[in-house]
Every structure is written in C-alpha cells, then in structure tokens.
Simulated assay, not measured.
Amino acid sequence: MTDAPHHRPRFTETVGLIAGREISTRLRSKAFVISTLVLMAAVLVSVVLGSVFGSNDDPARVAVVGEASAAAAEAPGLEPVVADDLAAAERMLRAGDVEAIVADEASDPLGITVIGLDSPPNQVVGALSVRPSVELLERAAADPLLAYFVAFGFGIVFFFAALTFGQTIAQSVVEEKQTRIVEILIATVSPRQLLTGKILGNSALALGQVVAIAALAILGLALTGQRVLLGGLGASVVWFVVFFAFGFVMLSALFAATAATVSRLEDVGTVTTPVTMLVMIPYFLVIFFNDNPTVLAVMSYVPFSAPVGMPVRIFLEQAAWWEPLLSLAILLATTAVAVLAGERIYRHSLLRTGARVPFAEALRGR
C-alpha cells in the first residue's frame, strides 16, 4: 500500500495564507485600530468644520429681473435689488454690487434661473426653496484656499498610509530575520511567496484604509450639503485611490527589500531612509507648490509623486483626459521594475545575518 502523494500548496494558496496572516495580525493591533479611528475622525471633523466656516448668514444681495423678483422676495436670506433688464443686472454682477442674478427663464421648469459670475452662487441657490438652473458668465480657477486643503488632504493621506504600512513591512521583515523565524518559513515557502504575501496583505489594509477615508469624506460632504465641492472632488478621489493602490505596491516592495539587507531592528530606520524620502518629498512638494502648475505637472509623471500630483491636477482641471492614463502606465511600469528588483534583493539577503548586505551585492546575488 503506497502513501497518497503529498499535495504541495499552489503559489496563490500560499500567498493567500501569508497575506491573511499579515491582515489578521494588524487588525488585532490596538495601535492600528486606534490610529485608523483617529485619522477617520480627523477627516470627518475637517469636513464638518469646512461646512461651518463655509456657511454665510448675511443676506445675499441679488439682482432680480422681471417676475423672478417675487421668488427672490419670498426666499429667506436674500436681499433683492430690482434691475431694469438682464443687461443692467449683468453690469451690477460684474461690478460686484450683487452676488448673483435671479431672472425669468421660460425653458426652466421652475420659471427662473440663477446666474453667477465665475462660480456657482451656492448661498443664493440654497436660499431658494427650489433648485433652479445655474449659469456662469465666466469660469474661475479653483479657490486657492480650497485647492490648498485638497492638496493637503491628498498629501497627508498618502504620507500617513504609505509610511505607516511601509514601516510595518520593514519591521516585520527584520523581526523575522532577528528571531530566525524566517529560516523556518523559508523551509516551507519560497522567498517570493513570502514577499508577495506581505506586500498584498499590507497593500490590502492600506488601500482599505484609504477607501474608508475617501468614503467617509464623500459621505460627510453629502450630509453637510457641500454638493458643489463633492461634484468637483469625486473624480480626483477615485483617481487617487487607483494611483495609491499601485504606488503603495511599489513602495512596499522597496521597504521590504531594503529592510532585508539588515538583521537588527535598530538599523531599519537608517536603511529605509531613501524609501522614506520618496514618501516625504511628494507631501512637502504638494504643500508648498500646490499653486504651481509646472511643479504639479512634473509630479504627476514621476512615479513616486504621481499618486499625489495627478489627483490634485485633476481636481484643478489642469490635466487633459489622457494624462492620468499615461501617468498610470508609467507608474505600472515602474512598479513592475521595483517589484522585480525588490524581490531579488529580498531573496538574496533574507538568510544573511550580521553586517548589512550592500544593495549592489544583493542584486547580483553574491
């Protein structure tokens, strides 16, 4: 009687087990749960404060034309100013005497329309009991303060998530080397499977955290009535999530590879400094140069800063429709190279203890 053949787990099965272990370990960490809740609370508070400080209780002066004056007079929060005709009302609007024009509009089901100068007159629209059609005489650039907060939001979420989970991967790699657990793991799984599982597990957690933050921010904007901001922010948030997903895979491979070259936790900070700088530089660039189209354009095509630079450009409507696709293609290619190089360094350094393994030596496999 012969023994049944031993079933060797497939690559995907092993990777799934390792990724599941990474996820469950992190979810059981109180520090991780608390930091996530604090970050989400901060996002919700910022959305609510934006709604509070963005509101205006002073009556809005509006130029009224024709029978639309009756609707404006009945609306609370509006101060109607009668204009002889639409041309006169437009002169008042351009001169800054009024915030908007309320005029008759036969084609509108409500019979009126609201006309703004270069941005939607939200206070006027909100004061009316109905939602009339809104027109703009000119298209303005995004509000500088709003653009700054959007850039800051993308920058801080990318910085916090990438650095937190990247350092987690690095510390996990060195802990396994220092305690020699990796020697037991390598006896049953390959270094490629181990690295892939670590990257996928932490990437899933990081992406989940980013998606939760984005969903909370969108929900907060919707519940606080900031629908105009929500409409302009939606596309850029979606692109941010997509770019972050691939960008973090690239960074996590580099964090794991650099950490594998050392054997003590005390050396993790030093050896991962170059990767940490790749996370920090986009954050500082977008904070200080969010109003510089040239810097943002360069950032949107550099793989390490594209997850921040391109979404900001999309929000500011500075990017053509094809630019995010081209930037994403560059990021995908760079991620593939980073993963291959990182896997090679990781594989050739994992079982070597003692002195730090030089990167060039690890790449050559000596």
Results as ranks from 00 to 15, higher is better:
5 P>D: 11
17 L>H: 07
22 E>H: 11
25 T>F: 12
33 V>W: 06
39 L>T: 15
40 M>Y: 05
47 V>C: 09
52 V>E: 13
57 D>S: 10
57 D>A: 05
60 A>M: 14
64 V>P: 01
65 V>G: 02
65 V>W: 00
72 A>G: 08
73 A>C: 12
73 A>L: 15
74 E>V: 02
80 P>V: 04
81 V>I: 13
83 A>G: 10
86 L>E: 15
88 A>C: 08
88 A>R: 14
89 A>E: 00
105 E>M: 07
107 S>W: 01
116 G>L: 10
121 P>H: 03
131 R>Y: 07
137 L>G: 00
143 D>V: 12
144 P>R: 14
147 A>Y: 00
149 F>D: 12
152 F>N: 04
160 F>M: 10
166 G>L: 03
167 Q>K: 06
170 A>T: 03
172 S>A: 15
173 V>T: 09
174 V>A: 04
175 E>L: 15
175 E>M: 13
186 I>D: 00
190 S>E: 13
191 P>K: 13
192 R>H: 12
201 G>N: 05
201 G>K: 06
206 A>N: 02
206 A>K: 02
207 L>F: 14
215 A>S: 14
215 A>Q: 10
217 A>T: 06
218 I>R: 06
218 I>H: 15
220 G>R: 04
220 G>K: 03
227 R>H: 14
228 V>D: 15
232 G>P: 14
237 V>T: 05
246 F>I: 05
247 G>I: 01
249 V>F: 06
249 V>N: 03
251 L>F: 11
255 F>C: 01
257 A>G: 03
263 S>P: 00
271 V>D: 00
280 M>P: 04
281 I>G: 03
286 V>K: 06
290 N>V: 05
298 V>Y: 08
299 M>V: 09
312 V>F: 13
314 I>R: 01
315 F>V: 09
316 L>K: 15
321 W>R: 05
326 L>P: 00
327 S>D: 00
329 A>M: 13
330 I>G: 09
332 L>T: 12
344 R>A: 12
345 I>T: 11
348 H>A: 07
349 S>Q: 01
350 L>P: 01
355 A>K: 14
357 V>F: 04
